[in-house]
Structures are given as structure tokens and as C-alpha cells.
Design a protein around this nucleic acid. Sequence first.
DNA 1: CCTACCGATCGGTAGG
DNA 2: CCTACCGATCGGTAGG
Lengths: 220, 220
Amino acid sequence: MSPRKSAAETATTRTRIIECALALASTDGLEGLTIGRLATGLGMSKAGVIGHFGTKEALQLATLDAAVQAFRLRVPARVVGARPGAERLARVFEEWVGYMQDGEAPGGCFLTSVATEFDGRPGLVRDAVLAAFSDWSAYVTSEIRAAVEAGELPAETDVDQLAFELNGVALAADQATRLHRDPSVPSRARWAIGRLLTPGDPYGRQASPLAEERTAPSRG
Amino acid sequence: MSPRKSAAETATTRTRIIECALALASTDGLEGLTIGRLATGLGMSKAGVIGHFGTKEALQLATLDAAVQAFRLRVPARVVGARPGAERLARVFEEWVGYMQDGEAPGGCFLTSVATEFDGRPGLVRDAVLAAFSDWSAYVTSEIRAAVEAGELPAETDVDQLAFELNGVALAADQATRLHRDPSVPSRARWAIGRLLTPGDPYGRQASPLAEERTAPSRG
DNA sequence: CCTACCGATCGGTAGG
DNA sequence: CCTACCGATCGGTAGG
């Protein structure tokens, strides 16, 4: 009943497969993803699933590519309207943390978990992860430079150091979301990021660029 | 030639198995660890390997437990001599970052990667990971409180917020080590941690408790 | 897109 | 601690 589909139908099926693959891989990893369970979840045969990609590695690459595109739409694309520099940086990290809270099961950022999964496994998947991280890193450092040029950050700012620390806040938010689904994560991250982007501010006692939006997390 | 071993020999073999399991799991994950490859790596039969544990899950738990013990010996146990509070905190995070640089292949902190691997997989392994993180978190917050009581941090310090941010620095160090083996990671982490523990310091321009040990990373 | 099938490997057991 | 074996599942192919 289902052979001989049009090109449009084929593309739709491919999208369905990738969406299911993203859901499975977000709990079991891109390596723990299997063609058999994917087929069961989709009500298809294994051959019908793998026929769209050829090999499991190609399926993993397609799934990763979809995740990278989803991240770009969900995070950087939402802040194109923000003023370059400190404001855009604060907002893009806030969107990233918001993205971690989306969806169900494990929470957290899919790309972050795939990076951890493949850091010790050389191959095309690892290469694609590194390329995506390189793009993101270039984006962040260029916005930091814009903030320096706009006088929002000191001229002597160590750009790579600040990028390292901003990334750390996002990773802390990611881990706290995954492990504890802690609802205070977004405000904790906002607080930390606001202070990193307001260098004169002694330990967060003054206003940051986001002061009107943020609330102080409860004392522990 | 090898049945009928003494209890001491049995324990030695068990240790050998766990050491090999740690090596395999650090690249393929605790779920990617298989009894077959473990047996091949040890020159044993599969039955000889799994006989020490009964099930794969018990093997995973034993491997995780060994990693937790190794972490405790490598990180907190090394700073028992340090003065409680800011000094001990700075040193324990420095030891953690140093631990990430140890060994070979993927680098990074084994427990951090297992946490990411199992955050979406309910079961005994996930429970054990959460227990280990809970212990670590209690240790860090108690040292932060000691620093507040000693007047090294302001009385109004948000303890959980500071623990969140210190953890973020360690996670950034972990990811940079895994993905890039970046040699500037330890000094970047030291710099960030020193500043978190020196709240009056406007953006790292003054001395921190570690000023004599640390060097500024190169500008990016 | 399916049925039918392949060799390899999985976790694990029986029995010694 | 081994050999021998189990059913299940793995990634993937042949052929339609």
C-alpha cells in the first residue's frame, strides 16, 4: 500500500523519521539510537527507515543537522533584532537557557549532550559537532568584540576568557536542568550572565542591562 | 588453567576488570560498554567477566563507584589540608580542573559525562550519579558557608548561586578539554574561579587568593 | 515502502 | 575461570 510515493511524500516521511530520531536520541544518545526502535516508533519497517539514509552514520548526521538548524532558529535567529553587543549577548544566552527548558523528558541542550557523547569518538559525527561549536563560538566572540567597541565592556577585555565564562553559565544551566529540572535555573543563569556583562558591578549589587527583567534567585 | 582462584586473586581480577571498564566507558559511555569487548580487552571469556557482577547494570554500578572513589581521592582528598572556606574552594576546583587533564583519550571528567549520559535514563545508575552529585554539592555549599562565616565572602552571598557559577566554570573547563584539549583551560578556570571568590574585585583587575599562582591567559 | 533474510554481536545461562 | 550455547537485537542488503 505504501510503495511509489511522490517526492513530496518522501520528504515528509524523511522529516517524520528525523523528528522521531531526535526524540529517541535525546534520551538514549545518537549512538543509542537504533534503526529497529525507530522503525517500531514510526510503524515502519527497518528497511523503510534506513533506505532514506543508507547507513546509521548518515542517519546520525541528518539528525544532528536537524538539531543544529533547530538550535539556530530557536536561539540566534530570535535575537537578530537586538542591538549588537552586550544586549544581544544577554538575550541570546537567555534564549539558549529558555531552549533548554522546552520540550519534555530529559531537558537540556541536545547539542551539548551530543558533544559529550562524541568527544572521544573520531568520525564524521564528531567533526560535525565541532563545526557547529566553532560557528557558535565565532558568533559569541564577534558579539563580545562588538560590545567592547561600543564601550559596553572594557577595552582590555579578554574576549576568549569572557566567552569561556559565558559558556560555563550555559553549561551549568544545562546540567541543573537535566539533573534536577530546577525551576530557578533561568533566573540563576540570567543573574550570572548579567554580571559577566556588567564588569564594573561588584558581585551583582548594581543594575545590569537586564535589571528590569530579572529577579534575584532565592537564597540557599 | 584458571579456575579455583583464591579470594585475593578474585579481588585482583575484579579490579582489573573495573579498570578496563573505566577506560572503555570513558570513550563509549557506560551504556556503550559491552561485556564482549571488555572480555577481549582483558583476554578473558565473557562469562568470566560477567560472573564477577551478575548483570551489566551491576557492572556499570561498580564502574561508576570506582570512578566516584577515584574522584574523591584525586580532588577533595588532596585539599583536606587547606584552610576551610575560600582557600579550600579555590584549591578543590583547581584540583578538579587538573584531574580533567589527567590520562589520555577523551579527557574531561568521567562523572560529568556519565551524568549527561544517564540524565534521561531512570534506573540505579542514574540514582547513583545523583547521589554522588548531591554529596559534591553539599561539600561545595558547606565550604562557601565557611567562607562567608570567615568574612571572605559578603554576608549577603547567595550560596546556591555561587555554587552554580563555580560549577559552570568547571563544566566549561571540562568541555574545552574534551573538545579542543585547549592547554589554556587550567589558567582560564583559575582566573574565573579566583574572581568568583573575590567579590570586591571589579572584573579581575585586583589580586585574588590565588594571585601568586595564576597567570593571565593570553588575550583572544 | 515492504518481506525476507544475512552475519555479527548483544546480555546472559548451564554446567563444569 | 572456561566452553558451549541461548534468544534477541544489531546494522544492513536483496529483490520487488
